[in-house]
Amino acid sequence: VGDQVLEIVPSNEEQIKNLLQLEAQEHLQLDFWKSPTTPGETAHVRVPFVNVQAVKVFLESQGIAYSIMIED
Rank of each mutant, 00 (worst) to 15 (best):
A54P: 05
L6H: 00
E14A: 11
E71V: 11
N51V: 09
Q25W: 15
D72S: 14
A54W: 12
S67D: 06
I16N: 02
E60F: 04
R46Q: 06
R46H: 10
F58Q: 04
P36H: 02
V47D: 00
I70P: 10
N51G: 04
L22V: 03
F58T: 03
Q25D: 14
A24Q: 14
K17Y: 13
A65T: 13
N18W: 15
I70F: 12
I8A: 02
W33L: 15
A65Y: 12
F49C: 07
L28A: 03
L28T: 03
S35L: 15
S11A: 15
I64T: 01
P10I: 06
S61F: 07
E26Y: 09
Q25A: 12
A54M: 11
R46S: 08
Q62T: 05
S61W: 06
E14L: 09
V57K: 12
V5Y: 10
G40F: 09
A24S: 11
Q21M: 14
P48D: 04
L28E: 02
D3F: 15
K56N: 03
S11I: 15
F32M: 04
K56A: 06
E23H: 08
H27K: 07
D3N: 13
A54E: 14
V47M: 02
L20I: 08
T37M: 04
D72M: 14
P39Q: 04
E23Y: 15
E41W: 07
I8L: 09
K56I: 14
K56R: 10
H44K: 08
A54Q: 10
D3T: 11
Q25F: 09
L28Q: 03
S11F: 09
E7V: 12
Q53M: 12
V9K: 15
S61M: 13
F49D: 06
M69Q: 07
L20K: 12
R46E: 02
G40L: 06
P10E: 01
Q62P: 00
E71Y: 12
V50F: 14
K34T: 09
V5C: 08
S67F: 11
E7C: 08
V47C: 02
V5M: 10
S61Y: 06
Q15V: 03
E7Y: 09
L59K: 00
E26L: 11
L6N: 00
L59M: 03
L22I: 05
E41T: 07
L28H: 03
S35N: 12
V47K: 00
H27N: 11
I70K: 11
N51P: 00
N51H: 15
P36N: 02
V55R: 00
E60D: 12
A54H: 09
I16S: 02
L30W: 03
Q53V: 11
T38R: 12
V1A: 14
N12M: 03
A65L: 12
D3C: 07
P39R: 03
Q4W: 14
A54G: 04
L30R: 01
V50D: 10
D31Q: 09
H44T: 15
R46A: 07
L28P: 04
M69Y: 10
F49H: 12
F49E: 06
L19Q: 00
